[in-house]
Design a protein around this nucleic acid. Structure first.
Lengths: 119, 119
DNA sequence: TCACCTTTTCTACATATATCGAATTATCGG
DNA sequence: CCGATAATTCGATATATGTAGAAAAGGTGA
């Protein structure tokens, strides 16, 4: 990847035009790719899965670290990626930071990926 | 990424259990991540978009290279990634190789990513 | 066989990133 | 303010990868 990736804010849920609505623009492709990249990691998939299925709907950093069996700093890094992509929101309460998945962002991705959305 | 990624065949359309069906297993997370990674690149998004919206449903390597304005070897590499993830099928006819998107693979991904699939 | 075109494979390289441990920051209870 | 706990940031490192050009392979027609 010779050319450096531009920095783009992709934290809002709705991202771009559907891939089947016509040849996608460079910019829309980049935005979509950045969001997909946020999910394209086994650890982050597991984190999202834990968050989606957690009874309370939210889990703190340390419990997530225990859940995926990785260092807290690593988990914090992944959560930051997910947050930047709008997949997770975090809130500090006391000494803990609680995270929850943003289902609407996942849904937005699913819409964009729909191969039949415009047929 | 200290530990080397295992080599896994992810070329079949249906991939794994939904992320919201319960905390996902390590293996399922890996499979899903590999498929997402295949799509998590601007160039590959553009290729898939071109294929999905191509009138004939299929496009040869050289026309795709023209479409995304990259070297043919680069495009061939990306197509190989997409093929390995089951997102594209390719067929040689004469001197050209024609590629088409597998919509059912995209759909399978969408199902797995559905945050409400099991509520 | 030979010339030519298309595609893939090979090689090299620069960038990106997942991980951890250490240092730093934030919060709370004395 | 201090000590303890939780979280993030920072620095280092090994692995992964997108890209292009050169070489090789596949395919056609004379």
């Amino acid at each position: 990847m010779p050319k450096a990736l531009p920095v783009v804010d992709v934290s809002s849920p709705i991202c771009c035009t559907p891939v089947s609505a016509g040849p996608i623009s460079d910019e829309a492709a980049l935005h979509l790719a950045l969001r997909l990249k946020a999910l394209a990691d086994p650890t982050r998939i597991r984190l999202v899965s834990i968050l989606l299925t957690a009874g309370a709907g939210e889990v703190c950093t340390c419990d997530l670290a225990t859940g995926v069996d990785l260092a807290e700093s690593t988990v914090s890094h992944h959560l930051s990626q997910l947050r930047k992509a709008g997949m997770v929101v975090s809130e500090r309460r006391g000494m803990n930071v609680y995270h929850r998945a943003r289902a609407e962002s996942l849904d937005a991705l699913r819409v964009v990926l729909d191969p039949n959305c415009c047929t």
